[in-house]
Design a protein around this nucleic acid. Structure first.
Length: 322
DNA sequence: AACGCGACCTGCGAGC
DNA sequence: TGCTCGCAGGTCGCGT
């Protein structure tokens, strides 16, 4: 669901509301949303109550809040040893939302976790995690040192620490520290199709099914194009396309078809009006139409999900070659 | 080691 | 009306 632009919209919204505030109470309404917190809901709540939120940072689609003043470290920690840095991690999965709400607002149908925050003038007092499909979730994670410059993303204060659970995630194309050379070298070493590689968060992060199709369309490349035959110019074109489409989507407040994808204030983005490939089965390819040609966008199953392509300007690679 | 599939969930609309 | 099916923007873990 939410891909990089949607998660970044949430991060930007959240940071102004929660930075510096203390979590005073935690209500876990559905423990399934804490599936990745191995120690259970009581441990989760107990460690959060009294903690202060230092920032909101992101790596790919993972979002986390480094915390201060978390309760005492575990009993087996050596005396005098500083408590390990801890963060509240959030992943929105396919349908997760993080919403700032006033206490009087009725519980959302799929409200899973409520964090009550210390009062602050003119600011909502609750941060709510709402998730219909429960593919997303919240959990606590350690922050571990990284030599790669920190979470990067578009964090205001990139720390030289990264959430352990996100340490396998590559940088995203909008990250100033993203290295095209590294990406291209690793891409060429793979024996797989281009779209599968674009969706691999360990190779390049933030791209999901919508923006992969948009970037491939823009770059005139087919999703099954073998990565080990990609020329540098092809890879650069599709990466630049991903960057453009995600930058535009970010400026529009993200893509959303319905109320499932909203910012922290509950508002939807407008980027769906700008989509050229995703969801356009049966409609004319806009680029072909502009050139006076008629070509109908098609939808195919790939990786158990839909892929939208123009049969004319994104021809399927033949016998493993271009 | 890397690839590719199935599992994890709920809800909606289409078709019968 | 009510059932079934297919579909939905992600990630992880397993088998090969």
């Amino acid at each position: 669901m939410p891909e990089l632009p949607e998660v970044e919209v949430v991060r930007r919204g959240l940071v102004s509301w929660v930075r510096g505030r203390t979590i005073t109470a935690v209500d876990v309404l559905d423990p399934r949303s804490l599936r990745r917190h191995a120690l259970g809901p009581e441990d989760f709540a107990g460690n959060l109550e009294g903690a202060r939120v230092l920032d909101v940072v992101r790596r790919g689609k993972f979002l986390w809040m480094p915390l201060a003043d978390t309760p005492a470290p575990s009993a087996d920690a050596a005396p005098g040893e500083p408590a390990p840095a801890v963060a509240l991690m959030a992943h929105l999965g396919m349908s997760g939302q993080l919403l700032m709400q006033d206490p009087g607002v009725p519980d959302e149908k799929h409200l899973k976790v409520r964090l009550r925050l210390s009062p602050a003038l003119g600011m909502p007092e609750q941060l709510r995690f709402v998730d219909q499909r429960i593919f997303g979730g919240l959990f606590l994670t350690s922050l571990i040192p990284t030599d790669d410059g920190g979470p990067g993303g578009l964090a205001e204060t990139p720390l030289p620490l990264i959430a352990e659970e996100a340490s396998h995630i590559a940088r995203d194309p909008l990250d100033p520290y993203f290295s095209f050379d590294t990406f291209y070298r690793r891409l060429r070493a793979r024996k797989t199709g281009l779209k599968r590689a674009l969706l691999d968060q360990g190779l390049v992060s933030g791209i999901g099914n919508i923006y992969a199709d948009e970037a491939l369309w823009k770059a005139r490349l087919h999703y099954a194009r073998p990565t080990d035959t990609l020329r540098r110019a092809d890879a650069l074109r599709v990466l630049d396309a991903a960057r453009e489409v995600m930058t535009d989507a970010l400026a529009a407040g993200g893509t959303s078809f319905d109320s499932l994808y909203v910012n922290v204030n509950g508002a939807s983005g407008y980027f769906d009006r700008s989509l050229n490939a995703y969801g356009r089965e049966g409609q004319e390819c806009k680029r072909c139409a502009a050139a006076g040609l008629v070509s109908i966008m098609r939808r195919e199953q790939f990786m158990n999900r839909s892929s939208y392509t123009c049969p004319v300007c994104q021809p399927r690679p033949r016998n493993g070659r271009w």
